[in-house]
């Protein structure tokens, strides 16, 4: 195989591994923003909390992050539900900007509380798996930990998609998304379901946070970039589409990886945003989106 081709394929594969985690983050926001129409600027902050939960388990109780991430997810589900009931629900029907302000405030509080509790110090989570020689086949190599994260993320992506499409709760959720006035008449407890889906979206961020932990360093403002990235993913995939967000995540991961390989890694984030602006101005329904709801 010629060199340029192997390089390209390698970059794509690396991008897919990261992309699976992006997909998980994006699907969480797709539930909250795409389906529930809550503009959540605290998504990255919740992801950060997920990372800290998993890190504390690792640091204090030697729980492997590949188990700890489940607890992160559960913790954030409960936490997300409480935050929804206390702070989001009261402003549920207010303008987008009030939601943006509120979630920005929540993000600030989360980041600063974590900094006060754990300090601003950088932490890393080294497990045996991350430092092992990579899994290699032919001319290609893949990081084992990233590969494991990819597989786990895949399971949750498919699981969430099936849940939203098939379960009664998922159907109720989509019913509310389609018509919030009629849904209660169909016997749907709107408040409960909305709280539930907000919590579910946050839990996805928590799971992704746990899975990202071995690959990233941890510090209180680690989540900042992920808030914007999550919105980019949702827009790429087409508003309101859970499946679209999954694909959007993979696309974003590959875009970053290819940008790094050919343009330089420092441009990856800028290319994310340029892609976002292009999609918004040229094809606002998203690359794969159906008509916007």
């Amino acid at each position: 195989m010629p060199r340029f081709l192997t390089d390209f394929i390698q970059a794509c594969m690396d991008g897919l591994l990261t992309g699976a985690l992006y997909a998980l983050i994006g699907m969480g926001l797709a539930l909250i923003f795409g389906v529930m129409r809550i503009v959540n600027f605290a998504h990255g902050a919740f992801l950060m909390v997920g990372m800290y939960v998993s890190w504390v388990l690792f640091d204090k109780f030697q729980v492997n992050p590949y188990i700890g991430f489940l607890i992160s997810g559960l913790f954030l589900f409960v936490f997300g539900y409480l935050v929804y009931r206390a702070l989001i629900q009261p402003i549920r029907d207010r303008s987008d900007f009030m939601q943006i302000l509120m979630t920005t405030g929540i993000a600030l509080i989360l980041v600063d509380s974590v900094q006060l509790k754990f300090g601003a110090d950088y932490h890393q989570t080294i497990i045996d798996l991350t430092n092992r020689p990579p899994f290699s086949f032919g001319a290609f190599t893949l990081n084992r930990a990233a590969l494991l994260s990819f597989v786990i993320a895949g399971v949750f992506i498919v699981g969430l998609q099936q849940f939203v499409v098939r379960s009664r709760t998922g159907q109720a959720l989509r019913a509310i998304a389609q018509n919030r006035e009629v849904a209660p008449l169909m016997g749907i407890n709107v408040t409960m379901i909305q709280g539930f889906s907000f919590a579910l979206g946050i839990a996805m961020a928590g799971l992704a946070g746990g899975l990202l932990l071995p690959a990233l360093y941890l510090f209180p403002s680690v989540g900042e970039d992920y808030t914007l990235k999550a919105f980019v993913i949702v827009v790429l995939g087409g508003m309101g589409s859970i499946e679209g967000a999954a694909i959007g995540g993979l696309v974003l991961g590959m875009t970053e990886s290819i940008t790094s390989a050919y343009l330089g890694q420092q441009w990856a984030l800028a290319v994310d945003f340029i892609l976002f602006l292009l999609v918004l101005s040229l094809k606002p329904s998203g690359i794969f989106g159906r008509q916007r709801a």
């Binding site: 690959a215 680690v222 970039d225 890694q265």
Partner: peptide, 17 residues
């Protein structure tokens, strides 16, 4: 001479170059 963004965890492309 290769620059990288610290917050992104994947420097493999840089190192390959």
């Amino acid at each position: 001479v290769e620059e990288y963004e610290a917050k992104a965890p994947d420097y493999k492309a840089v190192l390959r170059r």
